[in-house]
């Protein structure tokens, strides 16, 4: 069980070694979002300052603070759990939808229902299930834990990285395939060669993971005109609780990229945020469905 008071206290004791890595603070100048200050507000919130609740939502869970912390303090998780002032962590049981097929079971984790053509294609080899991450998104980012028996699936395709920390404990690493890796396995190569596109590798991936996925993406898609591997403000409940800030973050991250450029993002949650902010966006699964435009 995560000791949220301990996590907050560690950050509140720190001068803020990680503050320049926080995308929200650096983009918005909102001092409350700087990790050490967010922790101070978190402690007060837990002591009864309920009006401080909006501060706890100034975090997308990008984990930059944790990755750049000398003691790897998971502030993002303490903020997440504390939202809604939970005295205990509630578990949310998750249902998956059986889309048919046969053979080894394959779970598609996405906030967007997989395209029918893709499902038909995959059904030739696998028994397909879909976890609609949209159904657990706000529950998870409001502090609940997700209960899902992942052992029941032989393969898991991740198309929504926003809830990855909730679903993918280290022991499952062997059966997890990111959607861009699925394209690689299926033999897709340079499918956007000579097209102007932007690649977005979500912030919630570790530094090593980012490097791997960027390399795979280059192989599958071709060389983008730009690769963005930082937070665009599309997850963690930020767009729902602080829409203006979420919008500022995406425009800041995309600064210098024309709106008519296609953005290929490895996360369906980010795709939704990009689309609602006026950008053209696709995830790798869209390409399997045959849409190469």
């Amino acid at each position: 069980m995560h000791d949220v008071v301990k996590t907050f206290t560690r950050c509140a004791l720190c001068p803020g070694v990680c503050v320049t890595y926080c995308p929200i603070y650096m983009n918005t100048h909102i001092r409350a979002s700087a990790p050490n200050n967010l922790a101070r507000l978190g402690l007060k919130y837990l002591k009864g300052y309920e009006s401080y609740d909006p501060a706890l939502w100034l975090c997308t869970g990008c984990r930059e603070c944790e990755y750049n912390c000398p003691i790897s303090n998971p502030l993002w998780n303490a903020a997440r759990i504390s939202r809604g002032k939970k005295s205990r962590v509630e578990a949310v049981k998750v249902e998956t939808k059986n889309l048919g097929g046969r053979g080894s079971s394959l779970l598609v984790v996405s906030s967007i229902i997989p395209d029918q053509a893709l499902v038909e294609y995959l059904k030739q080899f696998y028994s397909i299930h879909w976890l609609d991450t949209g159904s657990i998104y706000m529950a998870y980012w409001s502090g609940s834990e997700v209960q899902l028996n992942l052992d029941a699936f032989d393969y898991i395709i991740i198309d929504d990285l926003d809830v990855t920390p909730a679903l993918i404990p280290g022991k499952l690493k062997g059966k997890v395939i990111y959607s861009i890796q699925l394209l690689e396995m299926m033999g897709y190569r340079s499918i956007l060669e000579n097209k102007a596109f932007v690649l977005h590798v979500p912030c919630k991936i570790s530094v090593d993971g980012k490097e791997l996925l960027i390399n795979v993406s280059y192989k599958v898609l071709g060389k983008p005109i730009r690769t963005i591997s930082k937070c665009i403000g599309g997850g963690g409940g930020l767009p729902e609780k602080h829409p203006v800030i979420a919008s500022e973050l995406v425009h800041s991250a995309m600064k210098g990229s024309r709106k008519d450029y296609l953005v290929v993002t490895l996360c369906s949650r980010a795709k939704t945020h990009l689309l609602s902010s006026g950008y053209q966006a696709k995830t790798p699964l869209d390409f399997i469905a045959g849409d190469m435009n």
Binding site: A12, R40, L41, Y49, S51, Y52
Partner: peptide, 21 residues
């Protein structure tokens, strides 16, 4: 606003940091 101005209530003076905790 209260939660927005509170971060400015101290700097990193240890006396204030510990008193707050």
């Amino acid at each position: 606003g209260a939660w927005e101005t509170y971060p400015y209530s101290r700097d990193y003076w240890p006396l204030l940091v510990y008193r707050e905790l």
